[in-house]
Amino acid sequence: MRPYWGLLRMSTRRILTYRLNSLILWIGGATFLAGSLAVWHALLSQGEIGGYDWDQMKAYLLIGWATGAIGSAYGDWWMAGRILEGHVATDLTKPLDYQWARFSEHMGGLATEFIAITIAATAIVTFTGGLVVPGPAQALLFAASFLLVAPLKFAIAYITTMACFWTQNFMGVSWAKDAIVTLFSGALIPLALLPAWLAGPAAVLPFASITATPAALYLGQATGWEALRLLAVQAAWVLVLWWGARLVFRRALRALTVHGG
């Protein structure tokens, strides 16, 4: 446990050193958030759409942005870089589990991410006047689901970076992943508003657990057994992707030896 804790702290420190990079990412996210808020404000001035009124939509967009921010400070870039530059060989010689080690580093970003999320939430409350506040049960469910977002996003990022064992250029892969996650998680637009041909895949893909699930719990769209079911699905995805990542990694290592490092 100790070495992993050390990795986590080291990662936090590194993020603080490279805070400008993180800042850039968050600024990009913030303008996206501001744009979406303005669009929805205009749209919802006529009345609610798909069951969302302005107050709910505000909360939804904030949650979408916050779940997007989770794990962004550590970034898959760092992980990918270590593979591309061949440091993975060094990492593998350490007496640590590779996946747990990367996960610890991933969690090291949470502190700074929470700060950014707090700032964004404060800004929204200040500039748009208030935010929907959930009841205690909802809040608890939301908190549980929000916590599960971190390992879930890690597993997805981790699997994506494995692409670096096969391709030299991570940028395109990472963007493609971001685009897909944004769309199918509900961060782009609530999944209920998507056309059927997209809503179908979104329902069976793991990405909905990133944004749509925490948002539904926060807004009280899912309560009781339905809420617990959503949480269970989310947890199941975490486990499936976690173990799936191990399989991919084993494959990737074979590719590593084939390519000769």
Binding site: T167, V173, A179
Partner: peptide
Amino acid sequence: DFWILVVAGLL
């Protein structure tokens, strides 16, 4: 790499 980037941009 070229195709991945083009597709990412397009996405």
